Structures are given as C-alpha cells and as structure tokens.
Deep mutational scan, measured.
Amino acid sequence: QTVHVKGVQYHFPNPEEAVKFALKVAKDLGGRVEFHGDEIHVE
C-alpha cells in the first residue's frame, strides 16, 4: 500500500497502517485523503 503526501511516497505492508497514517497526516496538514485503487493520496 502506497501513501502519497506532497510528492513523497510512503510504503506500508499493511493497508490498515497506511490508512491510519494517511488520516493522521491529512488531519495534521488540514488536507483530505483520496483513495485511488491501491494508492492513497493526501491532498
């Protein structure tokens, strides 16, 4: 599972961890989380 944050990719073997990370980052940055297939983008 890959999380993209402002052009940087973070790889997580566990999808659940990836989602938790993405939600935390989005909250910290005041952004939103978008799901694109296997990828999660924080915009």
Rank of each mutant, 00 (worst) to 15 (best):
Q1A: 14
Q1L: 15
Q1C: 15
Q1S: 14
Q1D: 05
Q1H: 14
T2H: 05
T2G: 03
T2I: 12
T2W: 10
T2Y: 08
T2L: 07
T2M: 07
T2N: 06
V3Y: 01
V3G: 01
V3A: 01
V3S: 01
V3T: 00
V3M: 01
V3P: 01
V3R: 00
V3C: 03
H4P: 01
H4S: 09
H4F: 15
H4Q: 07
H4Y: 15
H4C: 14
H4E: 05
H4G: 03
H4R: 11
H4W: 15
H4M: 12
H4A: 05
V5L: 08
V5W: 09
V5Y: 10
V5G: 00
V5S: 03
V5I: 12
V5K: 01
V5M: 06
V5F: 10
V5N: 02
V5Q: 01
K6F: 15
K6I: 07
K6Q: 12
K6A: 13
K6G: 14
K6M: 14
K6S: 12
K6R: 12
K6C: 15
G7M: 04
G7T: 04
G7H: 06
G7F: 04
G7I: 03
G7C: 07
G7K: 04
V8R: 12
V8G: 04
V8F: 10
V8M: 11
V8H: 09
V8K: 12
V8Y: 09
V8Q: 10
V8I: 12
V8C: 14
V8S: 06
Q9M: 13
Q9L: 13
Q9I: 15
Q9R: 13
Q9N: 07
Q9W: 12
Q9C: 14
Q9A: 13
Q9K: 14
Y10V: 04
Y10A: 00
Y10N: 02
Y10P: 00
Y10R: 03
Y10G: 00
Y10T: 03
Y10M: 03
H11I: 09
H11D: 06
H11M: 09
H11V: 09
H11W: 15
H11F: 13
H11P: 04
H11E: 06
H11R: 09
H11L: 08
H11S: 09
H11T: 10
F12Q: 00
F12D: 00
F12C: 06
F12R: 00
F12P: 00
F12N: 00
F12T: 00
F12K: 01
F12I: 02
P13I: 12
P13R: 12
P13S: 14
P13W: 10
P13F: 10
P13M: 13
N14F: 06
N14D: 10
N14Y: 06
N14A: 05
N14R: 06
N14C: 08
N14S: 14
N14G: 06
N14K: 05
N14H: 06
N14M: 04
N14E: 05
N14T: 14
N14L: 06
N14Q: 05
P15A: 13
P15G: 09
P15E: 10
P15V: 14
P15L: 15
P15I: 15
P15Y: 15
P15T: 13
P15C: 14
P15H: 15
E16H: 09
E16S: 09
E16I: 11
E16K: 09
E16W: 12
E16M: 10
E16D: 10
E16G: 08
E16T: 10
E17F: 06
E17Q: 09
E17M: 10
E17G: 04
E17L: 10
E17T: 08
E17W: 06
E17C: 09
E17I: 07
E17K: 05
A18K: 00
A18Y: 01
A18E: 01
A18F: 02
A18I: 01
A18L: 02
A18Q: 01
A18T: 02
A18W: 02
A18R: 00
A18G: 04
V19H: 09
V19E: 07
V19Y: 15
V19N: 06
V19G: 03
V19R: 11
V19M: 15
V19P: 02
V19I: 15
V19C: 13
K20A: 13
K20W: 09
K20F: 08
K20E: 11
K20N: 08
K20P: 02
K20D: 07
K20V: 08
K20M: 10
K20I: 09
K20Q: 11
F21H: 03
F21I: 02
F21K: 01
F21V: 02
F21T: 02
F21C: 05
F21D: 00
F21P: 01
F21L: 02
F21R: 01
F21N: 01
F21W: 13
A22G: 02
A22T: 00
A22K: 00
A22P: 00
A22E: 00
A22L: 03
A22M: 03
A22H: 00
L23R: 10
L23V: 10
L23G: 04
L23T: 10
L23C: 12
L23K: 10
L23H: 11
L23Y: 14
L23F: 14
K24M: 12
K24Y: 06
K24D: 08
K24A: 14
K24I: 08
K24S: 11
K24W: 09
V25M: 14
V25T: 09
V25C: 12
V25H: 05
V25K: 07
V25D: 00
V25N: 03
V25F: 06
A26S: 05
A26R: 02
A26G: 03
A26Q: 03
A26C: 07
A26N: 02
A26M: 05
A26V: 05
A26W: 03
A26T: 03
A26I: 05
A26K: 02
K27T: 09
K27N: 11
K27C: 13
K27P: 01
K27L: 11
D28H: 12
D28V: 13
D28G: 08
D28T: 12
D28E: 15
D28P: 03
D28I: 14
D28A: 14
D28K: 13
L29Y: 09
L29K: 05
L29E: 05
L29A: 05
L29T: 13
L29I: 13
L29S: 09
L29M: 12
L29V: 09
G30N: 11
G30C: 11
G30Q: 08
G30W: 06
G30V: 04
G30L: 06
G30H: 09
G30D: 08
G30I: 04
G31K: 03
G31H: 04
G31F: 11
G31E: 03
G31V: 06
G31S: 05
G31R: 03
G31N: 03
G31C: 10
G31W: 14
G31Q: 04
R32W: 15
R32D: 04
R32F: 11
R32T: 11
R32Y: 12
R32V: 11
R32M: 07
R32C: 12
R32E: 05
V33I: 13
V33Y: 04
V33D: 01
V33E: 00
V33T: 03
V33H: 02
V33Q: 01
E34A: 12
E34F: 15
E34K: 12
E34S: 13
E34G: 06
F35S: 04
F35P: 02
F35Q: 05
F35E: 03
F35I: 10
F35Y: 12
F35W: 12
F35D: 03
F35C: 10
F35M: 09
F35N: 03
F35K: 05
H36Q: 08
H36P: 03
H36K: 13
H36D: 07
H36C: 12
H36V: 13
H36Y: 13
H36E: 06
H36G: 04
H36F: 11
H36T: 07
G37R: 07
G37W: 05
G37F: 07
G37A: 07
G37Y: 06
G37H: 08
G37V: 05
G37E: 07
G37L: 07
G37Q: 07
G37I: 05
D38V: 09
D38M: 11
D38G: 13
D38L: 11
D38F: 10
D38W: 09
D38P: 08
D38H: 11
D38R: 11
E39N: 09
E39Q: 12
E39H: 14
E39L: 07
E39V: 11
E39W: 07
E39G: 14
E39D: 11
E39K: 07
E39F: 08
I40L: 07
I40C: 05
I40Y: 05
I40E: 01
I40A: 02
I40H: 02
I40T: 02
I40K: 01
I40F: 04
I40N: 01
H41G: 02
H41Y: 14
H41K: 07
H41A: 04
H41C: 08
H41M: 08
H41V: 09
H41S: 06
H41I: 10
H41D: 03
H41N: 04
V42T: 02
V42L: 03
V42I: 10
V42Y: 02
V42D: 01
V42G: 01
V42Q: 01
V42F: 03
V42W: 03
E43Q: 12
E43L: 15
E43D: 08
E43P: 04
E43G: 08
E43F: 15
E43R: 14
E43I: 15
E43T: 15
